[in-house]
Design a binder for these strands. Structure first.
Lengths: 88, 88
DNA sequence: TCATCAATTAGACGGTCATCGAAATATCAA
DNA sequence: TTGATATTTCGATGACCGTCTAATTGATGA
C-alpha cells in the first residue's frame, strides 16, 4: 500500500458517519446502497459522496446490478491498512 | 475506549504531518519538542497545535522538564485503538 | 534584574469537507 | 413512451482545520 492510499484511508475513517457506514458494509457480506439509507439520516447525495470517498480510498467495491448498487468491503486492503498501523 | 476518544484518534491520524510526528514519537522512547522541530518544516506554533491534538486524543503523554517538554507514546491507548479497528 | 530561549496562546487566513436541494442520468415497469 | 425509482453530479453554504505571525508565559543563566 502506497502512502497516498494510506492517507486516503485515514481521512476516510476520520468522519464518524463515514466510519459507521463502513462498519455496516463490513458487517454484511454485501449490501445495497438504498438499504444503507434507511440506517442513516442523510440525503442520497451525501451517501453517494461518502461511498465515493470509500471507493477512492480503495476500501470498498461497488457492483451495479439493475437499478441498485451493491457494496462490499475489500478485506485485503483493510488488512493491509491495519498492518501498516501496526508498524507504528 | 469510548467512542469520543476513538474518533479523536481517527481525526488525529488523518493529517499526514501529524501522523509523521506520531511515528517519530513512537520510534524514540522519549523525545523533546525542540528535537522534533528539526525534523519538520513547521513553526513552533503549528507543532504545539499538533502535540495538543495528539494529547487530547490520549495518544501521547507530555512531561515538562525545565524549559523542555518531553513526549511519549501511550502504547496502551494505541493498542486499544488498533483492537477497535480490528473489530471491523 | 534582564536578556534569552522553549513553548503556548490568540487571532487571522485560506483551503478542505460534510451537507443539502435541485438537476441530471439510468433503469425498470406499465 | 411515460412515470417511477435509484443513484450521481452540480453548485452553494457553513463549519472545521492546518498554518502562520505576533504576543505571552515560563524558566534559565549572566
Amino acid at each position: 500500500m502506497d502512502e497516498k492510499q494510506f492517507h486516503q484511508i485515514s481521512k476516510a475513517l476520520a468522519d464518524p458517519r463515514r466510519f459507521e457506514i463502513l462498519k455496516r458494509i463490513a458487517a454484511e457480506d454485501e449490501i445495497a446502497c438504498s438499504d444503507m439509507r434507511c440506517h442513516f439520516p442523510i440525503s442520497a447525495a451525501t451517501m453517494s459522496h461518502h461511498l465515493k470517498e470509500l471507493t477512492n480510498a480503495g476500501l470498498i467495491d461497488l457492483r451495479k446490478e439493475a437499478k441498485f448498487v451493491h457494496m462490499k468491503l475489500r478485506r485485503k486492503v483493510w488488512k493491509e491498512y491495519l498492518s501498516q498501523l501496526n508498524k507504528l
